[in-house]
């Protein structure tokens, strides 16, 4: 399972590195969305608003939706599913691999956007850095959940529009946990508690994915 996971993750990341979609499409979108959220707050509030952690995670959720779609598009190219089925790869490994690749992409984007939050939304550098472990875990959970929902929405009619409908209700608790832990890191509060909640969500989604991904990919 682990070997398959590494193979699939390496394959997805290699495709991403060659296509540069992350660099030239997703990242600029994230930066633009962060700037727009600053504008939406208004010039007077953007620099010192308690809403900064929530806006950061909202942007990350939007970015994640783009990336999940992208991750499914890779699988949707002609013959990919058939060849994966022919190779007899363990579906749990495929799930873990795709989730890992997505998580790596989200982590990279997440770090860039954290720097953006420091610059644009004026979040304190120390607090932002101490939020990093919780950001890593929450984005990991987002990747695991997203991979599962991506598989659910792929292949049918309008997967790009179906994905947000399916995944946003499941992303809501992750958004809450992420926002609270980031807020706790910036303004004080129960940082560890929210970090653990994100960790449990990550474990839960990984477990569900390992169990059910095979059922979704079954033909």
């Amino acid at each position: 399972m682990i070997r398959v996971a590494w193979l699939v993750a390496a394959k997805d990341l290699r495709i991403e590195r060659r296509s540069r979609v992350l660099l030239w499409q997703v990242l600029p979108f994230g930066v633009m969305a962060l700037l727009l959220s600053g504008l939406a707050l208004g010039a007077a509030h953007a620099g010192h608003s308690n809403a900064a952690p929530g806006l950061y995670y909202l942007v990350m959720v939007l970015v994640a939706l783009l990336m999940i779609n992208r991750s499914q598009v890779i699988e949707g190219s002609p013959g990919t599913r058939a060849s994966v089925a022919t190779l007899g790869l363990d579906p749990a490994g495929v799930f873990l691999g795709k989730a890992l690749a997505l998580a790596v992409e989200l982590w990279l984007t997440g770090v860039v956007l954290l720097a953006g939050a420091v610059l644009v939304l004026h979040t304190a550098l120390g607090g932002t850095l101490s939020a990093l472990p919780s950001v890593v875990v929450t984005l990991g959970a987002l990747a695991a959940a997203g991979t599962l929902y991506g598989a659910l929405s792929g292949g049918g009619q309008g997967p790009a529009t179906l994905l947000p409908v399916l995944s946003l209700p499941a992303f809501a608790p992750l958004l809450i946990a992420g926002e609270r832990s980031f807020s706790a890191a910036l303004y004080g509060g129960a940082l560890l508690q929210w970090w653990v909640i994100s960790l449990v969500a990550l474990v839960a989604y990984l477990a569900i994915g390992i169990l059910l991904y095979g059922v979704l990919e079954e033909s």
């Binding site: 659910l152 946003l168 209700p169």
Partner: peptide, 13 residues
């Protein structure tokens, strides 16, 4: 929202 999403999922396949 989950139940609405369930119905959307059914219509998409």
């Amino acid at each position: 929202v989950f139940t609405v999403a369930y119905l959307a999922l059914r219509r998409a396949n």
